[in-house]
Nucleic acid binder design. Structure first.
Lengths: 245, 245
DNA sequence: TCAAAAGTGTTTGACGTACACCCATGC
DNA sequence: GCATGGGTGTACGTCAAACACTTTTGA
């Protein structure tokens, strides 16, 4: 099938990656670098989200999946469309104008933004075409276009969502310890959690299943490994209508 | 300023209206009617959301606000962008093809969908250009395009949102009774709520302020009127990080 | 005086919160 | 044997849930 780009519409991907070792929530960003023709001056040197125009024949979800796959090689990751951004001036920053001179696309592009949840260890950065790099959410570099705004809104959505849905496990290996789960929550929400209470709460969930296996090496005392069962979760889950205003 | 339409992008407005008298949550829809040239046959007769392409100079929010104003005359209503819909075949139902023959727009239109919360009494349907009509959310008519899908997703979002944020008051007059609030929740969530528990819970909120006024006429025993104070709510509100998975 | 909706209190159980020490292992 | 992270128990308070009758008014 012929690939016809729609010049008015793009998808942008906010890729959250959690690193179990450094215990940090990261964002995958690509470098935007441009020198003047005589190469004496660096015109643009900042970072942006990965994104691309959609093709005429594909759905928005497919476009986002395609863009993520091109960047990371991953498919089957957690994906959420969280907002469309369509300010007519969203691509008209000073650096953006320099950049767009060298590329060739429409100033008035509406972008549909997605976020993805992955484990940093699942991505091999050396294999990516673009110069992609992980940045801790707590210290982002200078960002191009309106991507800082997009990232902040994605992060807010993620914070709310991880309180209500078991998406935290998307950021962890299949086998994890209770403390690792706690650390992810602490990284995302930027809070401290009481270990005893958290542990009790989690262990009592039917869908947190203890394995006949202990994690060794990293720590002194080997720690119990658990897994998350989506099947059990779906069975056990029941909507509650708690009005919490 | 010249009005240039972007043929690829539209906004669609899901207008929720609550009717305090009939105690029903309604949707404002417009009729899509088309006869064959010889007028012997009705080709299309169903309902759709109100929507329109965006202009090149306006933001998505402004486009949605504009479309709502054209339909209802209202501004300053609660508005939420909740999802973009971009399936390449979303406008290619049998009836949609008939309809699009007579109009003139792009099959591949991505629409950014918003929902609005208003009181049915605030809209004068006789003043609307289009044949607009309220339908209870519980008995929607036949819908064109992918608008049934859009409506259902808006409704799901509303159900979740009204549990966590005080948007319920957008659907009620400024002065309301506790029972009226309960009835809105019951309509939206399609549940029954215990009046004693609900009443106690609401009355204890600092931002639910009793007025020196009673509602008379409608009922036998005049009932106490209250108002909602957004100011107090914002002051009292504090984020809690209750993990509820 | 009666029909209709408004309004009221108590008990129970679940769960979130606060808080400090022992345990198992690798080095 | 000691440093390091893993793991445990109790008491308290808040709040949701269940549940039935009295009050006030208009007609």
């Amino acid at each position: 099938m012929e690939l016809i780009k729609n010049q008015s519409i793009s998808v942008d991907c906010v890729v959250f990656g959690y690193d179990t070792l450094t215990k940090s929530l990261n964002l995958l960003l690509i470098n935007r670098y441009l020198e003047s023709e005589d190469k004496n001056e660096v015109l643009v040197d900042d970072y942006v989200l990965t994104g691309y125009h959609i093709y005429e024949h594909e759905t928005l979800d497919d476009a986002a999946t395609r863009v993520l796959k091109e960047l990371t090689g991953l498919t089957n990751t957690y994906k959420k469309q969280f907002k469309a951004f369509g300010d007519p001036n969203r691509l008209r920053g000073e650096k953006d104008l320099e950049w767009i001179k060298s590329e060739n696309f429409n100033f008035r592009t509406v972008t549909v933004a997605y976020y993805f949840l992955i484990k940093t260890e699942d991505v091999d950065l050396k294999n990516t075409k673009h110069e992609a790099k992980w940045f801790p959410i707590t210290s982002l570099p200078k960002l191009g276009f309106d991507h800082e705004k997009i990232i902040l809104e994605a992060y807010e959505d993620l914070k709310i969502k991880c309180l209500a849905e078991p998406i935290i496990f998307e950021l962890l290996p299949d086998k994890f310890t209770i403390n690792e789960v706690q650390e992810v929550y602490e990284s995302i929400l930027n809070i401290e959690i009481d270990n005893r209470n958290f542990r009790r709460k989690l262990i009592h969930k039917k869908y947190i299943i203890p394995l006949d296996e202990k994690k060794v090496g990293v720590s002194k005392k080997p720690s119990q490994l658990y897994m998350f069962s989506k099947d059990v979760y779906d069975k056990v889950y029941q909507k509650n209508y708690l009005i919490n205003i």
